[in-house]
Design a protein around this nucleic acid. Structure first.
Lengths: 178, 178
DNA sequence: GGTCATGATGATACACTATATCATGGTGGC
DNA sequence: GCCACCATGATATAGTGTATCATCATGACC
């Protein structure tokens, strides 16, 4: 295991939400600092959307976000939330899970070399049983993809890796319960 | 290059379609044989949809398929094409590219160990410049993903790997043209 | 101050993607 | 014949994402 895959669960996944307010606030602060350093404008709207994504603690769809956003923004419409999501993705503060048409906060912890480095390599593990998702940053996967592309002369911009299966929790539940 | 990544271009990509009729016919024959051996029913409708996907030679959306299908099936509706696509994906005869919401014929050549083995490992390289896509089957990527998942106790069912970037053709064009 | 370019947001409408549901019809087992 | 099973027809609706134009704030520049 040389790839130092550091796990990073989103989603309590197994039924309950994850309103770990402290983590959300800390993430928002880091996001603000990152944007400031970069000259990107983390406006009030974008911050609200980021907060909603982080608070959900699991993949959340654009229209679910829109519903929640309307609690604080009267006239919010689809473009309102999509534009904010586009910005947040460009900044690497959130990711989109294509298979789910849903968004999650980036689980990248500070101090792993890159702090929200623009599109950083990441992969998602999606449990088909409980719906939880985990973001992992496995260098081995990133290298293998880069190598395969390079051998074909392909210049990589962004990579989407989404693994659907059964998480450790559900797998062990299956093993005991039959 | 130990992973024996065998390229398999879909899509002439660079402007012209790829109506390589012979290839399409051969693929249809192989598909029929595979389904027969498996007890799966490659009905006329499903065969028509598979043919349309193969003939397009590039990623094609469900509604574009529907339009074309209506040339041969009067009352075709969305469920008509989606049901056929679901079947073809289950059989591994086509793949969906999530980033594009589009479908391509499986480029797996016969004689690589698995013949349309149920979900076989594959990756897509998507050129953001010309829109061409290439399907590759890189064992290194597959192993890296399997390893990362296994270390977390995650049981893999299916893996989606989609790489967005610039293909060799467009990259060299950039290099010469500035 | 005035003008202008830029970028963010508001607001409306629309396009695109996918599924739910019930009805119909064919095939083969019994 | 009857039934179970599967594929398809047909209609309606749900879910996801963009195009477009208007408005407004900010800051550069003259």
């Amino acid at each position: 295991m040389t790839e130092h895959a550091h796990d990073a669960h989103h989603g309590s996944g197994h039924g309950h939400h994850a309103h770990r307010g402290g983590d959300v606030e800390a993430s928002l602060e880091r996001a603000a600092a990152t944007c400031l350093a970069r000259g990107a404008q983390l406006t009030e709207l974008r911050r609200q959307v980021l907060r909603l994504v982080l608070e959900s603690g699991q993949p959340i769809g654009a229209y679910a976000l829109l519903d929640r956003l309307r609690g604080e923004r009267r006239g919010a419409a689809p473009p309102t939330v999509y534009r904010a999501l586009d910005f947040l993705m460009e900044q690497g503060l959130i990711h989109k899970i294509e298979r789910l048409n849903a968004f999650v906060g980036c689980a990248e912890e500070p101090g792993h070399g890159h702090t929200h480095a623009h599109p950083h390599p990441h992969q998602f593990l999606i449990c088909g049983r409980c719906g939880s998702t985990a973001e992992v940053c496995d260098e081995g996967v990133a290298h293998a993809v880069a190598g395969a592309a390079a051998r074909l002369g392909f210049v990589v911009h962004r990579t989407t890796v989404e693994v659907e299966g059964i998480c450790a929790h559900c797998a062990s539940a299956d093993a005991t319960a039959g």
